[in-house]
Structure formats: C-alpha cells, structure tokens
Design a binder for these strands. Structure first.
Length: 490
RNA sequence: CGGGGUAUAGCGUAGUCCGGUUAUCGCGCCUGCUUUGGGAGCAGGAGGUCGUAAGUUCGAAUCUUACUACCCCGACCA
C-alpha cells in the first residue's frame, strides 16, 4: 500500500536503501560513509543493546571501556592483524589547528604534529591486550571477561547504511583465560549467545559455523560465526566469535604464573556484533509495504488509532484508549495511542505499517457501537474484528504468534533456498539463483579463491552440525569429508 | 585508486543541446475554512548565492576552464 515504494523484486538494494530512510531508521550524514541513526532506528538498536547486554552479564561478563585511539606501534605488533586492518584505518597526526596564513580557514598546526601517530580503533584487541599485560600476573587473575560497547572506524571504500559504514556501533568482548580449552569453550559459548539472540529476539534463523582459513578474523586461530540468509538469497554474517590462541598474548607479552609456578602465555577470545544487525533485521522480515519488526524488538508493539466524527465519540474513544493503554502496559506491552488530529486515520495506517509496528488496533466509533475493534497484524497484513472485552489477552497472544510466525517464515525461506550442489557446472548455474549451496570442498585456500574469482561466491562457513560425508570437491575433484556453505554475501 | 555519471527550494525535478522578461512543476512546509473507516479538498502564503571559483558576453542555470562534493560500476570489506 506504500506510495511510490519500490518492490524487492524490482531492485532489492534500492528497496533496502529507501526503506531505511522512509521508515525513519537512519539517514546519510554530510560526512562521507557515516550515517545518522534516527530516534526510531536507535530505539531498535537500544533494545538489541539491552537484551544482548543482559545475556553477556548472565554469562559472567562485565562492561569496561578502552580508548578510542590506539598508538600505531601497538597496532603493528600482531602481524596478521595489521595486514587485515591497515588498509582501512583513520590516522590522527596532529592535536591542534591553526588559522591558515591566507586567512581562508584552518589547517593542522605543523608544530602540533604527534610524536607517535594514533589509529582510530577499527577493533580493540591491541589496546586491550596491552592493558591486560598489567592485569594478568597469576592464574588467579584469570579469567578476565570484559565487554565494551563502543564505536569503531573502518575506512570502507563503499558503504551502505547499517550494513557497512565507515563508523559503526558495536560491542566487542575480550576475554583472557588460563587454558586453551577454556578459551575455545568461551568462543563457542559466545557464538551460541549470538545465535540465541538472533533466533529468539530477532526471529532470524542462523547457521552456526566456523570460518575457513581465508575468511577468518585477522589474528584469530578460529573464527566462529552465525550466518543468516537475506531475502535476496545473499548471506550476511551477523556475529563472530574468535578463538585467538596465544597470538595477542605473545604480541603483547601477557604471561602468568600457573599452578606449577611456570610462566605461560594467556589464551584469548574476542567476539563482536554491530549495528549491522539492524540491516540483518530489516532484510530478514520486511516486505514491499515497508519495515516488519518482530514484537520483541519493536519500539512500539501496538498502535491504537481512533476514528470518530462527533465530540461524544471522541470522548468515548479517548477513554477506552486510555483504559486499554494501561491494561496493555501492565502486561509489559509497548503501546502508543496516536490521537494526533493533524493527520487522518488513513495516513496513520500507512505510516505505522511502513514502520513495521506489529499490531494495530483501530478504535472506530462505528465498530465500537457493536463492541468491536479492528485488529491488524503487520506480518500477514490480515485484519479482523475482535471483541473489545478480551482484547488485551488476545493482543498478548497475537504478539507471541507474530514473533513465532516471523521466525518460521524466515526459516522456511532459508530451507527452501538451501540446496546441495555436486558439480562445478551445476554450481555456476545455481549460484546465480542465490541462496546457500552445500558443496564438497577440498579444504584449500587456492580452491576457495578460484571459486571466488570465477563466481563471486565465498565459503560462508563450515556448519558446526555438518554431517560427515565422503565426497569430491566440486572444483578440484579432490576428496572431501563434509559439505560447506557457499554463497554470495554482504 | 581506475572507468562512467550527476550537481537547480527541505526532497524529487523542468529548463542546459540552440545564452535573452519575474527560473518550471510535484511533494513537503506555513495560515484559514471544510474534513476524518486506507496517504483529504479548496483558497492564500513562505522558501533559490541554479555545487564553488574564474573566464567569454551588452546579457550566463545555459558556453569555456579549473576545483569540490556526491552517485553508479570495479578493486577492498563486518
């Protein structure tokens, strides 16, 4: 019903861009590659933030905050890490401006050049491990389980709101452990936390997996991930959790005395998820009428819209609305009564529909005379009249149903678009159709890169629940023991 | 950083080739009245350094040159 709104089929990426702007989630700022997250969009992120934060705390983590700036020398210490991030770092070189000699504005003061240049953090492993060196002396100091909510900067060539911006918001967990086993368990545990969050709150099914050598984090031994499928069949990495081995402990000389009084390097993990989740959320559920939000993340779960002609009707509806609002709020439901007289009901219908509000109650004078309200659910666009008497418990159940339905729908979509492919010829055809392709792969980086060059498809992950199965690599024909997931990705 | 394109009101645009009144239209905005069951109607109104700078000309949104910004396609990436 949305006016002049492009459909997913017509142009998926334009649909996404327009949706983000028109649903009032975010807008491009005047700074290249950076976006403004608007109140409605931020309210969704805030919910994600709070829910995830609780999950981190339940698993024993504490929040802390580390500096935005990282001395260049710290950054250089872990070879793989530098290689991965150097190309996209913002660098601070001066600490003062001065008036230009010709009076035409400001310029960095040459006398205020920094002794050592500072990197704006693209991620915080280095500054954190430099700090951990001072915190860790004994096995009794371990584990350290910290998380930080922060902004990071990665100077991307091409950006898209939420999916890839030069600056973005995220959380990054950084833990230190006495044993390899404990660190590995931590990395897997946090992947599971992300997966649970995605499925339970975002209603977004994910594949739990491990990255190939080629795709893993710069500086990690293993990268675990959750991968989701968007409605255009492309994969989106929605969270990563890294087992870092002793790489950062060695680079920053973080040693502790174990129970046997011997010096050992500490074991590390790091794990992160970002405002990219907003993009994932949008592209998982939304349709050609705009945003669709799962109730558990919707800033407004229920909107009530009055329709009346006379003053008596208006008074009657206002009173009813206030009563319903209280009752719904008592059930913990976020409800908004929009009795703004400047806009007409039809305008409001479209507005809230576009913004993805899960349930709308139309309080119309005509229906109310028969004791009815109109209930509209955003996920199926279905409307029905319902008795006003038990509307509160009905809405409560309906919200649960919508949450579950969105998950089921997304899962069905993913299952339908996931298929086994057994030959290179077949692969080249199937990859054009999108979706996840389950294929045998010989385990080598060379093969992976050749496939990427020829088809733009990458190995999204090796699913943790992939079953053992003998087969031949679709590209090289060499033996393989399990299938991996190939897809084009965001 | 390579290749292509665009720049006119808050947004989207006409006009540019072929220079000539007061720069077009829609949406949005403001005021008033009438309206209210799927983006209301009428009337009136406000809003512009035509990306920046220089040049050609009696006269430049329009022609020339330089610069800047943004978009698309590559290379790179959560």
């Amino acid at each position: 019903m949305a006016k002049d709104f492009i459909t997913r089929k017509e142009n998926y990426s334009e649909w996404y861009n327009e949706l983000v702007v028109r649903a009032d989630l975010a807008e491009n700022s005047s700074v290249r590659g950076c976006m403004v997250i608007k109140p409605y969009g931020y309210a969704i992120w805030e919910k994600m933030h709070t829910l995830m934060d609780n999950m981190f705390k339940e698993t024993g983590h504490q929040n802390a905050y580390f500096p935005l700036f990282i001395p260049k020398s710290y950054f250089e210490k872990e070879a793989e890490h530098v290689k991965g991030f150097a190309k996209e770092c913002a660098v601070v070189t001066h600490h003062r401006l001065r008036a230009k000699p010709d009076g035409s504005g400001l310029e960095p003061d040459p006398d205020a050049k920094l002794e050592e240049e500072l990197i704006v953090r693209p991620t915080s492993e280095t500054i954190i491990w430099d700090t951990y060196r001072r915190w860790i002396k004994s096995y009794r100091d371990l584990p350290i389980l910290c998380n930080q909510w922060a902004n990071v900067v990665r100077w991307e060539m091409r950006t898209r709101m939420f999916l890839r911006t030069a600056e973005f918001l995220w959380q990054e967990g950084h833990t230190a452990h006495a044993t390899k086993d404990e660190a590995e368990k931590e990395a897997k545990k946090m992947m599971e936390v992300y997966a649970t969050f995605a499925e339970r709150y975002m209603a977004m099914p994910v594949v739990r997996g491990v990255k190939s050598e080629n795709e893993k984090f710069a500086g990690a031994v293993d990268t675990y991930c959750i991968e989701a499928m968007m409605q255009d069949g492309k994969a989106l990495q929605a969270g990563t959790s890294h087992f870092l081995g002793q790489n950062f402990a060695k680079a920053f000389d973080v040693k502790f005395l174990n129970k046997d009084n011997q010096l050992e390097y500490a074991w590390a993990t790091s794990w992160g998820s970002s405002t990219r989740l907003m993009g994932a959320l949008i592209m998982t559920h939304s349709d050609d009428n705009g945003l669709v939000l799962p109730p558990l993340l919707a800033p407004i779960e229920v909107v009530m819209i009055p329709i009346y002609k006379t003053d008596e009707e208006k008074t009657m509806i206002n009173e009813l609305a206030q009563r319903l609002q209280k009752e719904l709020q008592a059930k913990g439901i976020k409800v908004k009564y929009d009795n703004d007289e400047n806009t007409k009901p039809g305008w409001k219908f479209n507005e809230y529909e576009f913004k993805g509000v899960p349930v709308r109650l139309t309080l119309g004078a005509r229906d109310l005379k028969q004791g009815l309200v109109e209930v509209f659910r955003r996920d199926t666009l279905a409307k029905e009249n319902h008795n006003v008497e038990n509307i509160v418990s009905y809405v409560e159940d309906l919200l649960k149903d919508i949450q579950q339905n969105l998950y089921n729908k997304a899962l069905k979509y993913r299952q339908y678009n996931t298929r086994e492919v057994n030959s290179w010829e077949e692969f080249k055809v199937e990859i054009e159709k999108g979706g996840f392709l389950l294929c045998h792969w010989d385990g080598t980086t060379e093969t992976e890169e050749k496939i990427k060059e020829e088809t733009k498809a990458t190995i999204r992950c090796i699913a943790l629940d992939a079953k053992e199965e003998e087969g031949k690599c679709i590209y090289s024909g060499k033996p393989s023991h399990r299938r991996v997931i190939f897809a084009r990705n965001y």
